[in-house]
Amino acid sequence: MSGPNTEYDPVQVTPLDEEHVTAMREQALAAIAGAGDLEELRAVRTEHAGDRSPLALANREIGALPPQARKDAGRRVGQARKDLTTALAARQAELEVEAEARMIDEEAVDVTLPWDRRPAGARHPITMLSERIADVFVAMGWEVAEGPLVEAEWLNFDALNLGADHPARTMQDTFWTEPAEHHLVLRTQTSPVQARTMLTRTPPIYVVSPGRVFRTDEYDATHSPMFHQVEGLVVDEGITMAHLKGTLDHFAASMFGDGITTRFRPSYFPFTEPSAEVDLRCFVCRGLAPAVADCRTCKGEGWIEWGGCGVVNPRVLVACGVDAERFTGFAFGMGIDRTLMFRHGVSDMRDMFEGDVRFSTAFGSDL
């Protein structure tokens, strides 16, 4: 009975002899060094270090060796494969650096070259001015509040002390949605945002609400059925008209320059009592003689009508769940479109809404 084969038969395991393993290793290292880019290196990795590479196939032959020969063969093949792994990692790092440098060079953009044939767009000046106004009040510690364009009749009118017989509810002033029994309107002012704020929050409240509003006005140089307003609301303890005056003077100076102040003229609004029209000191002649006499901006008055304001009517506070015995407040509203016309000498409101990009690009990227 014959015993186990303990003899090393070099004929059966030629791929594992030292000379053959060295040759495969040198061939693979040469291919790695000769790879010119990452794509070529990937091909070399598959050919010389993949599952079907010569060294991988040789490694499978180790199990066929007698026990005393396996250790040396395993060491030779393992060291060769380790050398390949190290060389592949080093060469990949080199090629990645080269590829990045080449990309930076090839994809560099000459910013001095003529720009694309397609003209660039521009942000609308109404949008930019709305954001600038919001920034003025945020810097004072206020918050920006928003609301829906389609508003409930109660929030747009009743909560603001506009009774059922108020003329503003008629079709001559308001866009009503169908069906009528839903009692929805396109908001005629941003004041419903103030009502929503008081209904959902407790004082102190300091909010400003810029946005689009809708009324059935004629579309001409000074009117539009869709325009933009900014309204402010403060509800806190001890609020007076003096706080309102100081706030509007700061707002006016932020929009039209230092030294521009406001004045109040007695008026009537259902949601404020007392109420006032806000006039803006003319930013051209600054209300100073003799320039005021010839000023075409204010037409010799020295003042320009800007908006409305007043102390929040206690009925509005009660309707919105605020304790009118403890808290008082003020509110104001100005036209953003009108402010833009004042600031930049826009003579025709229709220019703002016709979609001509040349109008927007004239204002640049900052107002």
Rank of each mutant, 00 (worst) to 15 (best):
T272K: 12
H183V: 00
M349K: 02
T86D: 15
A168M: 08
S275H: 11
M1L: 14
E325S: 14
A30C: 10
A159Q: 01
D173E: 11
T188R: 02
S209A: 15
P10L: 08
L55C: 02
G302N: 02
P274H: 10
F251Q: 02
D356Q: 13
V284Q: 00
F283H: 15
E354G: 05
L160V: 09
E26M: 09
Q189E: 13
N161L: 01
G63I: 14
A69M: 08
E18C: 06
R45N: 14
T170W: 00
R212E: 07
I32E: 00
D83V: 03
A145L: 03
P192W: 07
R25V: 02
F175P: 03
G50T: 07
I304P: 01
L41D: 09
G163I: 02
G34I: 00
V207D: 01
R296C: 05
V207Q: 00
E19H: 13
A56N: 04
F251I: 08
D356S: 11
T272A: 15
D110R: 02
G163D: 14
T202C: 07
G335F: 02
V235R: 04
F214W: 09
A28S: 10
L288M: 15
E131I: 01
R123D: 01
C295N: 05
L149C: 00
A331W: 00
E61A: 11
V109N: 03
D105G: 13
R296F: 08
R123G: 06
C282H: 03
N59K: 11
K71C: 00
N313F: 08
L340N: 00
R123Q: 11
R70F: 08
E131A: 15
R132M: 13
S267V: 10
N313P: 05
G364H: 04
E325F: 08
D366I: 13
R117Y: 11
G163P: 11
R25F: 07
V284L: 00
P179L: 10
P148Q: 03
L16F: 09
M241Q: 11
V235K: 02
V312R: 08
S360R: 13
S360W: 14
R132G: 06
Y206E: 08
E106G: 04
F330T: 07
S53D: 05
D323T: 04
A69I: 09
L155G: 00
V185F: 03
I260Y: 06
A90W: 01
E151L: 02
V284H: 02
T200V: 06
M349W: 09
L113F: 12
T216D: 14
T261Q: 00
G345R: 09
D135K: 13
P10V: 11
K71L: 13
A362V: 01
G308I: 10
S347N: 12
D116F: 12
E40W: 06
D116W: 12
A58K: 07
P10A: 13
R215G: 07
V278T: 08
A33R: 13
M128K: 04
N5H: 11
E98N: 12
F157V: 05
T200W: 04
A28E: 02
V322G: 01
C282F: 01
M226G: 06
A319L: 07
D351H: 12
S191A: 15
C320F: 09
F157N: 01
